[in-house]
Amino acid sequence: MSDVKAEWPLWEVFVRPKAGLDHKHCGSLHAADAAMAVQMAREVYTRRQEGTSVWVVKSSDITASDPGDKDMYFDPMEDKVYRHPTFYELPEAVNHM
């Protein structure tokens, strides 16, 4: 039976893939403390590319804009977020070997 007290906090991970580029959000992970979070981010999110820098932030420390505002929610301008090319990236070589 899991003990809620013992659950490790959630951290959001941002990786700078190459010098000169921005840090990009790549996902989250659980860690007990910041030192562990940074190490785990390296293990989990930079195994295939040389991330030059990793940021971790406790998810609870992130303040986000609220898309729940009904008027803004349906504003056509909001859609530009979904036009970002990275959201449509197709994986290579998955249908043939």
Partner: peptide, 11 residues
């Protein structure tokens, strides 16, 4: 003991 450490030990 936890998924993240599983990955770390394997590395």
């Amino acid at each position: 003991p936890v998924l993240e450490e599983d990955i770390a030990l394997t590395n």
